[in-house]
Amino acid sequence: MNNDTNFKRYLKLDLLPTPWCPGCGNGIVLKTICQAFDELDLPKNGTVVVSGIGCAGRSAGFFDLDSVHTAHGRAIPVAEGIKYANDALNVVVVSGDGDLIGIGGNHLFQAIRRNTNITVICYANEIYAMTGGQVSPITPHNTKTLTTPNGNPDRPADIQFLFKSNNCFFARTTAYHLNHMRKCIVEALKFKGFSFVEARTMCIVNYGRRLGYKNSNEMLLHYKEFYKINDYAEALAENEIGIIKSAPRSSDGFPSA
């Protein structure tokens, strides 16, 4: 065991291999979350992982921590309940974009308003992947999916302004930018208040194939070419990743009016 493999202590290695398709990016995010846990040396007895339903929801069972696999879209309310019951716990939500922003959109909005001290890590594969690739709230405009064969007619939800208006933490990162993703997750775990990390991952089987990608490596290289790092900016453009700068907070944790 050296520093590179220390993160494995947060995983149930006997349950591996993971259930995801070959080339799925969820494993990269799972690994990076564990590396961030290892960097902060989070206690195994004081950390709880909550997940919803979907491909990404399966990851909660692989953490060697207390974990809850909840109903579709209801990961954030369960996590908030755990945090209110025992404030000493570190509560982390891991789930997909369809679960958090689509089905559980209302809960996300109320959690931003309440500003509970939990961390949400969203595996944003831009699709409802487990059910075959239906359009999700952050699927880009004009993208072909199973339910939008002529291209997505709607604009993707730009949720960063919800977080900015309530002085919550928002970061966007991708599966290609591993160091950046790790930094974003560490900053989110350190943040006192509601923090959200949108980690773009690739889904090759139900999403990339329809867009003409031959393998998941091409999708990773697309992230490399498309996204530019712009940390601590006022707002992120469509092709930028980074951490949103939040305004100074008053001592009670609520945004200063």
């Binding site: 591996l16 291999p17 070959p22 080339g23 998941s216 990773l220």
Partner: peptide, 11 residues
């Protein structure tokens, strides 16, 4: 046992 031959490492 863990490898799914996704060929990310190969590329």
């Amino acid at each position: 046992e863990y490898c799914k031959r996704c060929s990310i490492c190969v590329n």
